[in-house]
């Protein structure tokens, strides 16, 4: 099922100035529920703009964005005449219907940012509270949850992201870069969003930090069944962690599909200025040297099993 859907979305920056540019150009796209979708593209391909539209931080110039079939930027007239809410309250009298629809839509808008959680690039810059615990609680507190529920969620989120409870009373500013990143991520996960959107979640981290962040994202999805969207320009990471991949190029969707389908078009991807995973290049080199590798290879795991079967060891070890 589609969790999120963009229909003919167009977005422009700095309209009316010399620097005007189209960030999204007539983009139609569906995000499947419960999957990890990777949105890849080089800088300026429109991917970061898209994430701001997904939780109502910004609205498109043209087109529609839907969450569970509800338009994020519906105007009053539409709401009262043709929306899914209209169908829901069809049986009420006109004035009662109007009241019911408007109040439900207001609630929907209010809760949007809690349902679609956004983790911006370098999220550690958003930390501000005196202690780590308070900072992780900030989002849940804004949701108006009970003390008890907040405490529980903070624990869970800290556990998921690997923030140890010894750090709870520390100031977030005294932590290391990797720890700060995890606290910031926990702050969003504690809101338990149905959709978690992340912009370059591992940017600037060392290999260990990278792996930690990505595995906590995968854990979050597995534990909550949430939909995850990762915006990145690292094909290596996308290949490793995503179920589906969307490739953005020049403000449009260039490719979309299961990662196997998308990564099969390696040539096109590199012509869009994206970096091919090193392992894929290695597989290419091996093919040139005459090794019978048939499948597209984009993770070390796939390369290992493919080569083991080439070497005739496939069955024995795996």
């Amino acid at each position: 099922m589609d969790k999120l859907r963009l229909e003919n979305v167009t977005y422009r920056y700095d309209v009316g100035t010399a620097f005007e540019q189209t960030a999204l150009d007539d983009v139609t796209l569906s995000i499947e529920e419960g999957k990890i979708t990777g949105i890849i593209g080089h800088t300026g391909s429109g991917k970061s703009t898209m994430m701001k539209l997904l939780n109502g931080l910004d609205h498109p110039a043209e087109g529609k964005v839907y969450l569970d079939g509800v338009d994020l930027n519906a105007d009053k007239k539409e709401l009262l005449s043709s929306s899914s809410l209209f169908e829901k309250y069809q049986n009420l009298s006109k004035s009662a219907r109007k009241k019911a629809i408007l109040s439900e839509y207001a609630d929907f808008k209010k809760n949007l940012c809690f349902r679609v959680g956004l983790v911006m690039q370098y999220p550690e810059y958003q930390l501000f509270e005196e202690t780590v615990e308070k900072d992780i609680s900030f989002g849940p507190k804004n949701m108006g949850l009970s003390e008890e529920e907040i405490k529980k969620r903070v624990r869970e989120a800290a556990m998921l992201t690997g923030v140890s409870e010894d750090l709870f009373e520390k100031s977030p500013f005294d932590l290391s870069g990797g720890q700060k990143r995890r606290v910031a991520l926990a702050g969003v996960m504690a809101m338990k969003p149905e959709v978690l959107v992340l912009d370059e979640p591992a940017a600037g981290l060392d290999p260990r930090g990278r792996n930690n962040i990505f595995s906590s994202i995968v854990d979050y999805r597995n534990q909550t069944g949430s939909t995850v969207i990762i915006v990145s320009h690292s094909m290596e990471d996308m290949a490793k962690y995503c179920d589906r991949v969307v490739v953005m190029n020049h403000a449009r969707v260039a490719m979309e599909g299961d990662r196997k389908e998308v990564f099969a078009h390696v040539g096109e991807l590199s012509s869009m200025g994206l970096d091919i995973p090193e392992i894929t290049r290695l597989a290419e080199l091996l093919r040139e040297r005459g090794l019978p590798l048939t499948d597209a290879i984009y993770t070390v795991e796939e390369a290992t099993s493919a080569l083991l079967s080439v070497f005739g060891k496939g069955g024995a070890d795996r």
Binding site: K52, L57, C113, L118, M120, Q126, F138
Partner: peptide, 15 residues
């Protein structure tokens, strides 16, 4: 630019 980014990040946390 930074201000805008932080504002967006905090709005996403319900401010």
């Amino acid at each position: 630019e930074e201000t805008e980014r932080i504002m967006n990040a905090q709005r996403a946390r319900g401010v």
